[in-house]
Amino acid sequence: MAVFILRRLSQSVVLVLVMSMLVFLGVFAIGDPINTLVAPDATEEERQAIVVHFGLDKPLYEQYGRFLGNALRGDLGRSFKFNEPALALIAQRVPATLELAFASLLLTVVLGIPLGLYAGFRPNARSSRLIMGVSAFGFSVPAFWLGLMMVMLFSVFLGWLPASGRGTTVAILGIPVSFLTWDGLKHMILPVINLAAFKLSLIIRLTRAGTQEVVMSDYVKYAKAKGLRNGRIVLVHVLKNTLIPITTVLGLEFGRTIAFAVVTETIFAWPGMGKLIIDSISVLDRPVIVAYLMLIVVMFIVINLVVDIIYSTLDPRMRLEDQR
């Protein structure tokens, strides 16, 4: 196991390197950061001074080489726009994003799996059909539309919940969190629902499909015929067989929520990382984009590593193996 994890993490070094190269190439292809950074009425002299200062006049490979050299010394560069270390900028935003991501994951699991099981066990019940219909709604609307619709309903018309922002935060070990105060929680409700909507629908559907497969399979029919209790069937067979795709999807969705919650964060003015990366992409603030995506790659590697480990505990036949 330890060897497996170590090997996987060593692969991540390569990936991080590849990612940084891709970002350099990508930003180079999109445009010249100088045009978005410099004041529109800047003189040519000012432009040139900045181009030289940021090293944008050098050939790309040289800029990349310089970046790598600094990165090896632990310096991922400073934001062009904010002149702050890119990592520090990102680190400020991490707690807010993680809080939303975990909350929406929790909501998805706590609601999605039971509802899916229910709909799977009683596929023809009216209530099951309702669950399926409503869950189709969850992924049929773009997140920004749903988000603003909820704001209109719950904040503007009913006045129950705040329209945006993070609300009161409490510091735990120096990290600000919202979920410990009532005000903070109120601010979290709508963004969390907005983030969870798609995931929830998908998990309900996956669980239902998996459950149905198992319920109709011969061995469960046989078990039923033998008079085993329903609960046992659920635990032993259904969950075991549906948890593999569910774990995979939850891992994927969790990663996506952390990395790209931009729409929800924009609509709800939530000070998370997704907004930072979108803003950085739109002004081509390369140091921030590179640092951010390098972190995200590591995060996805870790998430998928955890998912792979979960596989092997769920089903011992799925051995942990990796390139020999």
């Binding site: 990936l15 984009i289 998928n304």
Partner: peptide, 25 residues
Amino acid sequence: GRFDSFLMRVVDLQLSFPALLIALV
């Protein structure tokens, strides 16, 4: 084996790459 590791690392990379950046390029 190797193919699996390689493909899954490409997948990790791809998943980390924002749609916005791909679309912009």
